[in-house]
Design a protein around this nucleic acid. Structure first.
Length: 312
RNA sequence: GGCCAGGUAGCUCAGUCGGUAGAGCGUUCGCCUGAAAAGUGAAAGGUCACCAGUUCGAUCCUGGUCCUGGCCA
């Protein structure tokens, strides 16, 4: 029996993944093949972060089930390893029901970790917080020197100023005795994966980002952040760093003006899009398609032959 | 119209006691294993407003021109 395929729908922010995912789900349903969306976006997991993340609304979802959205509080910290487990479980569950999971999102590391053979060595909050305290005290260069003595190879791969990665390397060495920081090969750990990237010309994308940020403010992003601040947004290490949210927090604290907050949000989102593009472009398996009206039928035809029920 | 301040990288500005210039942000290109919308490295980019003078040499000094902002009329 042919396994139910997994469709990964990637692309930078504002490339139109949300709309395409829903359209593809409908198109597959028309062929008698049910499909549901599994989120692969690191910020959509937070309850209440709606406007600034451009989270698909109920209306935009058009009745297609969306999974792994709104599963955490803003005061909690998401992590790749945890999300990997949740997403893999959800994908398996969909396939067991004969439903095509559409893994849609722009968090490339998440997608990579879910689809490929990507194992995380574990973590220990006590070790971690101790190392972080040390980092704050002695600075990254001193810790990098210690890492160099413990594991020269690992140290060579991490620049002396990158405190966060040095801390994690030291943590892993302490827990497991060694640190392997090689990213895995582009080899799917899941079978029957079809990976599509949505392509949008750079200038169109930039213009769209600018409009989107304007709309966020008009739709009440500031009020949303004020509400989330009361629910512990500032305590969340991950959520408080989200583009737009970080800037509005700074605005509310009087550190920057509203105009600066908007401008920095546009810049930050643009930079994010370029980073995402960089990740996805490096993945040789992605089939790139222009993000226009023809995208949906082309994606369906990419899936044709792999899904029982979609004839040729 | 008068007075003052200023015209240096795409933007905001620093600087050169005269020896053709830097920062932050932006841009481009990378790196990435439990924070990834995070973290981090590098590169490109400037006839220093214009014209003339002084000087071996001017972005810097002098004179003029144009432009911008502020104050006074």
């Amino acid at each position: 029996m042919t396994p139910v395929p997994v469709l990964a729908l990637n692309g930078p922010t504002a490339s139109g993944k949300t709309a395409v995912a829903v359209a593809v789900a409908h198109a597959l349903a028309d062929h008698g093949v049910p499909a549901e969306v599994v989120n692969a976006d690191s910020m959509l997991v937070y309850r209440g972060m709606d406007i600034g993340t451009a989270k698909p609304t109920e209306a935009e979802r058009e009745g297609v089930p969306h999974h792994l959205i709104d599963i955490m509080e803003v005061s909690e910290d998401a992590s790749v390893a945890e999300f990997q487990a949740l997403a893999r479980a959800k994908i398996a569950e969909c396939r067991a029901r004969g439903v095509v999971p559409i893994l849609a999102g722009g968090s490339a590391l998440y997608v990579h970790a879910i689809l490929d053979d990507f194992r995380f060595p574990g973590t220990d909050p006590r070790v971690r917080s101790r190392l972080e305290a040390e980092l704050a005290e002695v600075g990254p260069a001193a810790l990098h020197e210690r890492l160099r003595q413990l594991d020269p190879e690992a140290a060579a791969g991490i620049l002396p100023g990158n405190g966060r990665r040095i801390v994690r390397a030291l943590e892993v060495i302490e827990l497991t005795g060694g640190f392997r920081s090689q990213l895995p090969e582009w080899t799917y750990a899941l079978d029957t994966v079809v990976q599509v990237g949505l392509e949008v010309p750079r200038d169109v994308l930039d213009a769209r980002i600018e409009q989107r940020v304007e709309r966020m403010w008009a739709d009440g992003l500031v009020a949303e952040v004020e509400g989330l601040a009361r629910r512990g947004l500032r305590q969340g290490r991950t959520a408080s760093r989200a583009i737009g949210y970080r800037q509005v927090l700074a605005q509310l604290d009087g550190e920057i003006t509203e105009a600066e907050a908007r401008q920095q949000t546009v810049f930050g989102t643009r930079r994010l899009a370029r980073k995402q593009l960089g990740w996805f472009r490096r993945d040789p398996r992605i089939v790139w398609l222009p993000a226009d009206a023809a995208a949906t039928p082309r994606i369906v035809s990419e899936l044709r032959g792999r899904v029982a029920g979609i004839g040729g």
